[in-house]
Nucleic acid binder design. Structure first.
Lengths: 166, 166
DNA sequence: AAATAAATGTTATAGTATTACATTATCTCT
DNA sequence: AGAGATAATGTAATACTATAACATTTATTT
């Protein structure tokens, strides 16, 4: 995926397809099963770059072969989280596909408050800063997440336009 | 409050009392009311350095003069959040007193997975890193939160001890 | 094919948060 | 001080998010 795809026009169908294929390969490599249910939910999560809630996914699998109940969805989400194939955006109670599965997880997201799209950024500066401050406090880091809220480039310019017009 | 108090023994009663007094003054300065209900809930939040959930607070105001229903608590929490007197730890659905009300909010927390205590750290390195990466992506930052999970100094040494004994 | 383990189905419930409207308390202005 | 406006709190209902416990089915191993 191109670096800033989440915030710009791109061939998302290809984006989605390659993510699914990558997930399949990663599961095979890790000796875990990428079942039909897991594939279907993972594909749904990758339908856009907007984080999606468990219950939205639940609605979307109604009518499919699968039992549309919360445990079905949550178990599958847990699996995908464990495999590092998706992330959870805590402030939104929502899930989003991971852009660099297999690579080290950085857990940094820029979330647009206007269009709800989220971009995962792989940033060593933030990681370094976190490790430094943790070390200063003698805190043993296991994991972290940084959620940055604001406006993406596109929504900024749209706001500017509407402000001019008003 | 001393810098690392959340993770070490300290006179917490004084910690709590001064937080309440500081909140009262800040509200007066900002022309908003620090009512009895707000004071009571704020005090409860400051009873420890563990983030506390809304429903735990709800339990604790049962028997008081106030209506122990969710809106009572959530409205008050919203007020305290708006005033920058508390923070919400998204991953825990829990709230914690702000250690530097009035000062610029950094939104960085180290959360111990063993004892559940959380320490708010005011760190320019993280802020700088966030601003840098946002600027790189032409993203307009409004707010952010960094939640760092791991083990605090005390729980690390306790773990070490128990490992030796086993 | 039997035994085992993994995945999914099913029912119930726990935990978190908001909406909408009623009532009470406080503030402002004359 | 009293009327009107505003802010705060009370109340009832409901929406949203997540997990527990146990049953059944499917896949893997031998």
């Amino acid at each position: 995926m191109k670096v800033d795809s989440a915030f710009s026009h791109h061939n998302h169908h290809q984006c989605q397809t390659s993510a699914v294929e990558q997930a399949r390969q990663l599961c095979e490599k890790n000796g875990v099963r990428f079942t039909k249910l897991r594939e279907q939910l993972f594909t749904l999560i990758w339908q856009s770059h907007k984080p999606v809630t468990a219950y939205k996914l639940l609605d979307q699998i109604k009518g499919s072969d699968f039992s549309a109940t919360p445990p079905t969805v949550y178990r599958t989400l847990d699996f995908l989280l464990d495999q590092g194939l998706i992330h959870r955006i805590n402030s939104l109670n929502a899930f989003i596909g991971c852009c660099q599965p297999g690579k080290r997880h950085t857990g940094t997201f820029m979330i647009c408050e206007q269009c709800d799209h989220a971009l995962e950024v792989d940033n060593t500066n933030i990681l370094n800063a976190i490790q430094k401050v943790s070390h200063q406090h003698n805190f043993q880091v296991k994991n972290y997440i940084t959620e940055i809220y604001g406006f993406c480039p596109q929504c900024q310019s749209e706001k500017d336009n509407s402000e001019v017009q008003s």
